[in-house]
Design a protein around this nucleic acid. Structure first.
Lengths: 180, 180
DNA sequence: GGTCCCCTTTACCGATCGGTACAGTCTTTA
DNA sequence: TAAAGACTGTACCGATCGGTAAAGGGGACC
């Protein structure tokens, strides 16, 4: 089960997606991670704040590595954009259609983690702008904003309507909209 | 200040937008509404659950009256769609760019208020589908889904980036996309 | 004036909150 | 084998949580 800090971070991320950051109590965290209070405060001396920061770091690093960096690589822009949709689609589908940064942006956590949230979306939009521009799109920056926003909206709507396929099909339409 | 139940509901809605439903404590609610605990439980015998349901009812009724119904009226479809963007844009801009239903869809409140959340978005999409279809759009239902999702995404992104104008401009682009 | 009813105030409840303290148990290293 | 450091279990802390009980205030109506 949970063996070290890295494992704990993954379990915490899953928890925060399910319960939300503020509503995830330490008792619930203990139960879901299998870690006692002493262990939790050993790995995260700052308590829940440290846990959230570690989770956001992990997720942010994943996106930087698996999404943002590939968007800037060489090769056909359309293929890179398609890879982004594939990667992010699979990511959120296997994570209850919750984007932790998006959820925190909507809630009060925005005050505490504003910089991390802003950085996540800024980096995503900036990275997506690159291949869009290379593929000859006018206003690539605005288009990238609409695509990232469209993905976030699809998450909200799919969760609201309990319709996982809606998310998949929305992403398909977004993709078709930017690459023929 | 808060004189009756209707006033209280407006104050509660403002509170839930700021703090989120689960994180808004009764102490905070007392302070923001100016109502004592006895008064709150007099107006809302079921506690926070009743408060949330009353708030969702009020918001839902507002959208039904000010957004969904006008979308189904007579007249030029494009004008009705434009009116929807104007009304919802002004609504969310004056409410901290938070959609209570969207926020609850992302969070754990979805379990408790799933029917209300689902109804809100279903009604919105269904109503928007009408003028889109009348204006000759192919796949009007899917287009309506994308527009409603786009608005939700714009809310998330604008809050994440602390950029109110981003919300306005995103809505402008969405509008231009569906009505020339 | 008396009586009802809507609303409010206040005190209180057990449960749970996030966090701390600290002794104890492993595993690693010398 | 001994010491050290990484990790864990448990008891505990004051504060706050959502909710309840009951007495009192203040008009409206008879």
């Amino acid at each position: 089960m949970v063996r070290d800090r890295a494992d704990a971070i993954l379990a915490l991320a899953e928890m925060f997606r399910t319960y939300g950051f503020e509503s995830a109590s330490l008792a619930t965290i203990e139960k879901h991670t299998g870690l006692g209070r002493g262990s939790l405060y050993h790995f995260f001396p700052g308590g829940k704040n440290d846990m959230a920061r570690a989770v956001l770091d992990e997720v942010g690093a994943w996106f930087a590595r698996e999404v943002y960096a590939p968007l800037r690589e060489d090769g056909p822009p359309a293929a890179r954009i398609e890879a982004m949709f594939t990667a992010t689609g699979a990511y959120f589908r296997s994570r209850h259609l919750v984007c932790l940064f998006g959820a925190m942006a909507i809630g009060r956590e925005r005050e505490r983690f504003g910089d991390e949230i802003r950085g996540y979306f800024r980096d995503w939009i900036d990275a997506l702008t690159v291949p869009l521009e290379q593929s000859g799109a006018r206003e690539a920056g605005l288009l990238a904003t609409d695509v990232v926003g469209g993905i976030q909206g699809a998450l909200v709507l799919a969760r609201a309507l309990h319709d996982d396929d809606l998310f998949t099909r929305s992403l398909d339409r977004l993709q078709a909209q930017v690459i023929g």
